[in-house]
Design a protein around this nucleic acid. Structure first.
Lengths: 156, 156
DNA sequence: AGATTGTCAGTAATGATTCTCAATAAGAAT
DNA sequence: ATTCTTATTGAGAATCATTACTGACAATCT
């Protein structure tokens, strides 16, 4: 598979190198419909390269985000979004789940805002944080700090 | 000054209490045009109440956010936004500065998106990351990892 | 006043993220 | 193909923001 073929020129243009680890990380995020945490990506890459370290995953994901290949998604735990196109991420504060909602109007909003301020946009983050329908249905458990631990190990 | 007068009914309605510490925290965030980190608020409150602990500041800010009085702003370090109304935050990757750009259409976008997904919104993050006009004029410096450490101590 | 319940300070604990640095390997040049 | 330069890797320790916990204290109600 050549899904990462486009990586080469991008990295070379920056004096960067194409390594097997980076290809594995790339494939673990780009095109995924989930929003993997660093921990999840780490586990996936580990299946092929048992010796990779977390630091490598962290820095590589950061690099890809700089290149605009993926988007960081905030929350208690950092996640990555490998989908193309602007969209809103709904982040559940209780379960940590993330849902995408595309909206064509976002592009226009972005252009308009950036232009007005003379700002050179590299990446965008549109997020709504709150409670997802499923968690709301489960009743109002403890307040905001209900489900917390080991969130990094799950996907969203 | 009575800026926090509205606090009383809000807190009482929840079985909460109005304390001097909470008033101080309130005044350190609401109406500010900056986006203070928890650390900044902590320092400000400490000037008046040298004995407050970080835990108090954390939980109180969380409480205010739940009440909708302020908005959490995610990132490497948690910040709070005391301004009313949705707006886009332009975050400069080089100098770390944050600029607000209000846009009335955001509210509608938010409502529409949340409704479609049955999502209960608690806070929103509309951010454009890139290079601000001032930094662009200064020419191209280092990459994303330029300004980083002790971010919690600075404002934005 | 006494009872009840919410809040505080202080501090330990937690856990995600980043750093350090020697060893390795990618890409360019020969 | 071999060598050279330098980005990248890995392993673990270190950092730092955020939470949890606990005993003391204070506000409100009866």
């Amino acid at each position: 598979m050549e899904t990462w073929a486009g990586l080469r020129p991008l990295l070379h243009g920056r004096g960067g190198r194409v390594t097997p680890q980076r290809m594995a990380i790339y494939e673990a995020v780009v095109g995924q419909t989930t929003h993997p945490s660093v921990e999840t990506v780490y586990a996936a890459v580990r299946a092929r390269f048992p010796s990779v370290s977390r630091a490598t995953v962290y820095t590589t994901l950061g690099l890809f985000a700089d290149l605009g290949l993926i988007q960081e998604v905030g929350g208690r735990v950092r996640r990555y979004d490998g989908r193309a196109g602007r969209h809103v991420n709904l982040v559940c504060e209780r379960c940590g789940g993330v849902t995408d909602v595309a909206d064509p109007r976002l592009e226009a909003l972005e252009r308009r805002t950036a232009l007005r301020a003379g700002f050179d946009v590299r990446s965008a983050r549109f997020e709504l944080h709150g409670i997802c329908p499923r968690c709301r249905a489960l009743g109002r458990g403890a307040g905001r700090r209900a489900v917390r631990r080991t969130e990094a190990a799950r996907d969203a």
